[in-house]
Nucleic acid binder design. Sequence first.
RNA 1: GCCCCCGUCGUCUAGCCUGGCCUAGGACGCCGGCCUUUCACGCCGGAAACGCGGGUUCAAAUCCCGCCGGGGGUGCCA
Length: 473
Amino acid sequence: MVKTRFAPSPTGFLHLGNARTAIFSYLFAKHHGGKLVLRIEDTDRERSKKEYEEALIEDLRWLGIEWDEFYRQSERFDIYKQYVQKLLDSGHAYECFCTPEELEKERQEAQRKGIAYRYSGKCRNLSKEEVEKLKSQGRPFAIRFRVPDGKDIVFNDLVKGPIRINADDFGDFVIVRSDGTPTYNFVVVVDDALMGITHVVRGEDHIPNTPKQILIYEALGFKVPEFAHLPVILGPDRSKLSKRHGAVSVRNYRQEGILPEALFNYLCLLGWTPPNDKEILSKEELIDLFDLKDVNSAPAVFNREKLLWMNGVYIREVLSVEELAERIEPFLKEAGYEFDRDYLIKVLDLARDSFETLKEAPSKLEPFFVDDFPLSEELLKKLSDLGAQEILKVVSQEIEKTSPSNPEEVKALAKNVQKALGVKPKNIWQSLRLAMTGKLEGVGIDVLLSVLPKDRVLYRINRVLSALEGAKA
RNA sequence: GCCCCCGUCGUCUAGCCUGGCCUAGGACGCCGGCCUUUCACGCCGGAAACGCGGGUUCAAAUCCCGCCGGGGGUGCCA
């Protein structure tokens, strides 16, 4: 059975790149009827924070990613210890007493000479006695993996194809820090092996780590899994997408009013194309269609515009009005609007195509919720220039009489008034627009008048009318 | 520096493996038009790309080599 894993470290909010990795891991597993493991990689005690772990989980859930198993590496130190011992016993690993200062010196030396830095191997061949002696002196030590000289390590990456790296390109690397905690390259292997991960899906920044890990798999006698390295997501300047490019966490987009379905769908299109031309796809369709072998091996630039467009598609075409109402309510309440669910649904049914993020809904939908917008001098001036006084009086009489309840009836009403008064349609509509919303742009007035309760329509008209009276006097 | 990955419209990409069907297709964005009570939405149309240079071949975006360009890694971070 296929089993993938998503293994974030809790050092910040869920990054878009990681979110996409999580999505691809999830889709691949589900496509093959397999399982997804969520594993929190918190071996770095310095930087790992519980709050971030909680945020990670919340954002993953919000995105719609479901996992079948959950682990936390900090709770597995005992397990790692056993495997370190195995490596020590078999001679695949050894104690290294070099201090950070010494290593730093070696590194600088290498840089000065312009050669690639590798650990010198100073402690590689310490005798058992020497090791014991240093240990008894209380000297801190790390444990390094003994990398075989000159070995070519080859693996067939599911998205990149065959990759060959020579072991001489990296020296003996640390698997246990001097404080006793194991490092990433080591625990990742033990965990992936023990958890039965069949396909390791992760960012391509892990390619250089892969040969090291393969060496550990082999030293421990574990079966080496398949690897799939996803190209990174780039910012507009084609460098790795990071904070300096602006909003890069899932949380940011959630707050911006992006729908999880849209973000999920959009992220899939970064590096992967559906077999047909259809781009708007549900999670189920994506599970059905997705395959790692179709993932593009070139990095992709994140395109905010397209995400926004896609979010708009979800708002106006994909979600049901009921679903949309549910999602949008918090944003409207946040803006201080009062309404009930039925009213909101009526509003959304006719006006959902006027905004593309949930966050902009309050301002775009304001006319449906706010009666007492400010009546400025400028506004009253515009109204009187349009001859609004007369128009509004007649309109309000008509509304009183016919109570239009759909856009067509409103249009008919406007036409009647226009005929009766002999004014241009534009004057009718603009007068109404200014009187109802205070602005010259926005949602269709026919739409507004068909959902706004009659008493509120009349209230707004009368308020403008009396302001107009007052201005004249 | 060294190692690895990558290179089709501004952006995401299809095509590349299995050369001719490519006058290089789609999407976002952009431009123009239509619709219209405004802004949007919607509809119609348009501009826009095979990084460069060599080969191989009757034929190359597709195969080979070199160059250039971009990205990632180079940690007792993950």
